[in-house]
């Protein structure tokens, strides 16, 4: 089933959805959003593409493999708990660090953000893995 409308839509929606998913991921800490929703959006971008063009073409158009994406996500989530261990707190305690303190560019970054990135990648990876497996003819 090839639909030209769907194909054009998917082609343009994909970068938009990915960008949106990144925004959702980033703002998740203070406003609605987060790694889980972001990951689902990221996955949805590729699922839409796969529905329009087929799984094979989608696989070829991306440089990563969903299995590896899941693995990397899990790994990042896991290591985000390590800094706390090094600092003597218990595993997975949130550790924060403020960059450019006192300037306009003040930026607070912490391990929970890293953890959220891990969740994001894992969810995206597993969603793509499952959907691609099921959609493959």
């Amino acid at each position: 089933m090839e639909s030209i409308i769907l194909q054009i839509a998917a082609r343009h929606m994909r970068p938009l959805l990915i960008g949106l998913s990144l925004i959702v991921l980033y703002r998740g800490h203070n406003e609605p959003g987060g790694g889980f929703i972001g990951g689902l959006m990221f996955g949805a971008a590729y699922i839409l593409y796969a529905m329009a063009f087929g799984v094979d073409r989608t696989q070829k158009s991306i440089f990563f493999n969903p299995i590896n994406l899941t693995a990397v996500g899990l790994f990042i989530a896991l290591i985000s708990g390590m800094p706390a261990l090094l600092l003597g707190d218990s595993f997975m305690t949130g550790e924060w660090y403020t960059f450019f303190q006192g300037t306009l560019m003040e930026l607070k970054l912490g391990t929970p953000l890293l953890f959220d990135v891990g969740v994001y990648l894992t969810v995206a990876g597993m969603l793509m893995l499952v959907m691609f497996s099921l959609m493959e003819e």
Partner: peptide
């Protein structure tokens, strides 16, 4: 974090 749901999760 102001988003309590997400703070709980992560």
């Amino acid at each position: 974090g102001r988003n309590i749901v997400n703070v709980i999760l992560v």
